Lab assay of single mutants.
Amino acid sequence: VSKLITEALSVSQERVGMSLVALKKALAAAGYDVEKNNSRIKLSLKSLVNKGILVQTRGTGASGSFKLS
């Protein structure tokens, strides 16, 4: 899941990052079952932020906008 998230964010052209909703849409378009794996998406977002791979530009927790650091 982390690999899919970083790939989706690297393609994004948004300056402020990608919102959680837009990220879920991009994952669904890539063929990932978002409804079934919603908790996995949130956990991997939090772990990527803690590792310093992603930066959360808006919001708290697993909601808001994210971009690559």
Rank of each mutant, 00 (worst) to 15 (best):
L45M: 03
L45E: 00
V49A: 04
N37G: 10
G17P: 02
I5E: 00
S47N: 08
L9Q: 01
T60C: 11
A28L: 10
E7S: 02
L68F: 09
K67H: 08
T6R: 11
L68A: 07
K46V: 07
T60M: 14
F66C: 04
N50L: 04
S47G: 02
L48C: 01
V34W: 05
V49F: 11
V16K: 07
E14Y: 01
N37L: 11
L9R: 14
S44N: 08
L27K: 00
L68G: 11
E7C: 02
A26F: 07
K51E: 13
G31N: 04
V55I: 10
G17M: 05
V16T: 12
S47M: 11
F66Y: 11
V55T: 14
N50E: 13
S10E: 03
S2T: 08
K3W: 01
Y32F: 10
K67E: 12
A26W: 07
V1K: 03
E35P: 04
K46W: 03
Q13I: 05
S44T: 14
E35F: 05
E7F: 00
G31Q: 05
L43S: 13
I53G: 04
E14L: 01
S39K: 13
S10D: 12
L23G: 00
S69Q: 09
G52H: 05
E14R: 01
E14K: 03
K36A: 09
L20P: 00
V55E: 13
Y32I: 13
R15K: 15
I53M: 11
L68S: 09
V16Y: 11
S2E: 15
T57P: 11
A26V: 11
S19W: 08
N50V: 03
D33T: 12
E35Q: 10
L45W: 09
Q13H: 06
G59L: 11
G31Y: 11
I5Y: 00
L27F: 06
K25P: 00
L23F: 07
G59D: 13
D33Q: 14
L23D: 00
G17A: 11
S12R: 02
A28V: 09
A62M: 11
S65D: 13
V34E: 04
V34G: 05
R58E: 13
L27A: 02
S47H: 08
R40E: 12
V16Q: 14
I53Q: 13
S39L: 04
R15D: 15
L68D: 08
N37A: 15
R15G: 08
A28G: 09
